[in-house]
Amino acid sequence: MTRTGVRADARIVARADGRGGTALPVLDGSGPLAPRRTRGNGVEARVVVVGAMSGPLGGDRFTLNARVEEGARLHLGSAAATLALPGQAPGEARYDVRLDVADGAELHWLPEQLISATGSDLRVTTMAELAAGARLVLREEQVLGRAGERPGLLTTRLTLRVAGRTVLDQQLSCGPGAPGGWDGPAALAGHRTVGQLLVVRPEFAEHPPAPRMLGDHAALMPLPGPAALVTALAPDALRLRRVLEEGRALLG
């Protein structure tokens, strides 16, 4: 018997409450993608996505939409790592994240790691659409296989648009079945974690951060727009997080 993949959609809207804080008029989602409000710091709203099931599995389709309206501030994270597993349903799993940030608004999208387990096949797209005066801190961490395990097939595409202009469009494919050379000296060279930190600030348009290396396998790079990207490779998730956090501290 073939199983039909699970469909899960989470929707979050953050809106300035008029008293200097942020309200969450929309906070929808259940099962594998259940957003929960946690204690914020008064100005920003904090939301954690809680996964009540494991996944995504083959055939599953997850979407997460977060919209931060003018002047609002949202900090969005996840309670645990996301584990991509092989499923019984045919086809790959998909996880599409769509982030919209308005002028004067700020979004932090800082989920825990995405782990690609043996035999899994997951496509992730993250599309951040920002107004000219929006701010964003986005972190993505991919872990290729659980401890000592071969990874599954993982394809991620990260796109940033600011004021309608594409500032970053990057796809990474790795694992068995990915195009040749994915683990070679041009791509991962045996590293089992790869991550990106994307920071968008309007002031970067005038004063872009200077490019610099963060150790031997990570670089902080100003993008062709008001944004900077840290791309990092590391042997394990802990060291990957450390270098991305170093980048975050540098980018303020």
Partner: peptide, 21 residues
Amino acid sequence: PQALPAASGPLLEIMAEAHAA
């Protein structure tokens, strides 16, 4: 142009920055 591929090799980008310095 969004239909164009965007495939990347992380070390090509990272090491290009190291090399430039």
